[in-house]
C-alpha cells in the first residue's frame, strides 16, 4: 500500500506540471502544424514534449497515478486520446489536452511513444502477488487479450510494468463501471474480480519487467 503522503506529493506535482504544461501547450501550438501524412515519429516527439511533464521523460512516468506511455501500443494510445477528445473518457487533467489534438497529432504522438523503450518505474511486487498473480491473470482472461506477457496488442494496452496506482484505479473503475469502456469488455472482465484480487493483480502486473 502506498502512503497518503506519497499520493499528496504526486497530486501537487501534477498540478505544478499542469501549469507549466498549459504554458508550453499554447506556446508550441503556434509553431507546430498538423502534418497530413501518415504517422510521423519526429513530429510526434516534438508534440510530446508537453505530455512528458506528467507522463515522464520519453513517456516513462515517474508518478504513480499517471500511466507510462513509452513502449505502449500505438493504437492503444490513439484510442485513449480519441475518447478523451470526444468526451467519452473523462479526466480533469487529461481531457483539456486531448481537446485540441487533431487525428494526425494523435497518430504522431502514438507512433512516437510506441517507439520509445519502456523503463518501468521501480516497483517490487509482494510475495503474495508473485505467487497468485499469474494464476489470476489467466483465470480472469487478462492474458487472453493483453497477451501472455501482458505487453498488449493493437488497441489493447500494455499493462506489464505499468504504474501501480494507475492500474489499481483503472481496475476499480472498470469494476464499478465508472471508467469509460468503449465495448464493455473490460467492465465485463473486471466485474468478476473480488476487491482483494484487484489488489493482487495490480501489485503483480506493476512489478512485471
Amino acid at each position: 500500500m502506498k502512503t497518503s503522503s506519497f499520493t499528496l506529493f504526486s497530486s501537487q506535482r501534477v498540478v505544478t506540471n499542469l501549469v507549466a504544461t498549459l504554458f508550453l501547450c499554447f506556446g508550441t501550438s503556434l509553431f507546430l502544424g498538423s502534418p497530413s501524412f501518415a504517422a510521423d515519429i519526429e513530429a510526434g516527439k516534438q508534440k510530446a514534449q508537453v505530455c512528458m511533464s506528467c507522463h515522464g521523460p520519453a513517456g516513462n512516468s515517474e508518478i504513480a497515478e499517471i500511466p507510462a506511455l513509452a513502449g505502449q501500443t500505438a493504437q492503444a494510445i490513439t484510442t485513449s486520446l480519441y475518447h478523451f477528445r470526444e468526451g467519452n473518457r473523462k479526466n480533469p487533467v487529461m481531457s483539456p489536452f486531448a481537446a485540441n489534438l487533431s487525428n494526425a497529432d494523435m497518430n504522431n504522438l502514438a507512433a512516437y511513444f510506441a517507439s520509445e523503450k519502456r523503463i518501468p518505474a521501480p516497483y517490487t511486487s509482494s510475495a503474495e502477488a508473485l505467487q497468485q498473480g499469474p494464476e489470476l491473470a489467466k483465470k480472469y482472461n487478462c492474458v487472453q487479450c493483453h497477451g501472455a506477457a501482458l505487453l498488449g496488442q493493437q488497441h489493447i494496452p500494455r499493462v506489464s510494468g505499468q504504474q501501480h496506482a494507475y492500474l489499481l484505479a483503472q481496475l476499480k473503475g472498470f469494476k464499478a463501471t465508472t471508467r469509460y469502456d468503449m465495448d464493455g469488455n473490460m467492465s465485463s472482465a473486471a466485474s468478476m474480480l473480488k476487491d482483494n484480487e484487484i489488489e493482487i493483480l495490480a501489485d503483480y502486473i506493476s512489478g512485471l519487467r
Partner: peptide, 19 residues
C-alpha cells in the same frame, strides 16, 4: 479456456484515403 483470440477495434483516428 487458453484461447488467445481477442476482439479487434476500429482505428478511431482513421486512415486517410491516400494511406
Amino acid at each position: 479456456e487458453t484461447s488467445t483470440l481477442h476482439p479487434f477495434s476500429p482505428i478511431f483516428t482513421g486512415t486517410e484515403a491516400k494511406d
